[in-house]
Simulated scan of single mutants.
Amino acid sequence: MSTPDTAELLADAGSATLLPDTVDHVAVARLYGEPLFALPQDLYIPPDALEVFLEAFEGPLDLLLYLIRKQNFNILDIPMAAVTRQYLSYVDEIRSRNLELAAEYLLMAAMLIEIKSRMLLPPRKTAEGQEPEDPRAELVRRLLEYERIKLAAARLAEVPQFGRDFLKAQVYVEQALTPRFPDVALADLQGAWADILKRARLVQHHKISREELSVREHMSIVLKKLQGRRFAPFEDLFDPARGVPVLVVTLIALLELAKETLVEVTQAEAYAPIYVRLAFTPAA
């Protein structure tokens, strides 16, 4: 039986290094896609780099409540020996890795041991007809209160939140190029009408007469005054010298024209002078 020569073994080893895909099954890792057959000598891996935490607790009460609920213990009748033993095993585990984190848990461990010790002692004497105080009562109260707060926080976390579950929709609407005059407020129209009545009383004459006034006729008069004018001041459409009855009919005629969209009553801004113009409706 013949044995392979040393030169042949070296040649085979050299060809193996040239073809890493053929020996990829023995590579310890891959670096940027290339197989790595030996760990670097200067590679430093921290002791806690590969730690895996299966459960994350927010504090000692959270851990204690987890141990009780996981094993279906009655929270009003906690088996202190079993719970304390499991709690201390977890504290020993985190104390070897993070001493600062374990300090808070050690305080709760001392409290559990104290409660267990008080349960082993004879109960204190109380008044007639009263039951001795349970050493676990304060711990049970804190656990129930913590559980209620934790469940409420979980329900609040399920509520949709802005930025996490939805975003605000923003729509850009391009403004029209044609300027839109603000609508005339009723109070401004009443103020302008009161000024016209005040001027009419200053120039009125005591004359008793009966005159038939037509709204349609004054509608035509208003339209004639607006012909050829882009805007006409509101007070220019009234003639105070003709008396209050004519002013009233003229106002009614102006309102009828505005109702039939034959004229437009506008103003540049709030509290600005009121103007009237003809309303031009483009042909269909």
Results as ranks from 00 to 15, higher is better:
L63C: 03
G59K: 08
D5Q: 04
E55C: 13
L31W: 11
D24A: 15
P35S: 08
V26P: 07
A16G: 04
E51N: 06
E51L: 15
H25K: 14
L18P: 00
L50Q: 13
E58M: 09
P46D: 13
P46T: 08
F57M: 05
E58T: 15
E8S: 11
T17M: 07
E51I: 14
S15H: 08
P47T: 10
V28P: 00
D42I: 01
L31M: 10
L64N: 01
E55N: 15
L19Q: 09
A13C: 03
D21A: 14
A49M: 11
A11F: 04
V28Q: 09
A11R: 14
D42Y: 06
A49Q: 08
Y44A: 10
L39K: 10
A11Y: 07
D42V: 02
Y32E: 11
Y44I: 13
V28L: 14
L9C: 05
R30T: 12
L39Q: 09
L19C: 01
Y32F: 09
T17H: 08
T22R: 10
L39A: 13
P35Q: 06
Q41E: 14
D12K: 09
A11E: 12
L10P: 01
H25N: 09
L64I: 07
H25S: 14
A11I: 06
L18Q: 07
G59A: 06
F57D: 05
E51S: 12
A16Y: 02
V26Q: 07
Y44N: 08
S15Q: 15
L36V: 15
P20K: 05
G33A: 07
L61A: 03
R30Y: 14
S15D: 14
E34F: 04
E8M: 07
P47C: 01
L39F: 15
L64F: 03
T6A: 15
L54K: 09
Q41C: 08
V23W: 02
A29K: 05
D42T: 09
Y44H: 14
P60C: 01
G33F: 02
F57S: 10
A38K: 11
P47V: 10
V26M: 11
F37K: 00
I45E: 07
A29M: 07
V26H: 05
V52T: 13
F37N: 01
I45N: 02
L9H: 11
T22L: 15
E55G: 10
F37P: 00
L61W: 00
L64A: 07
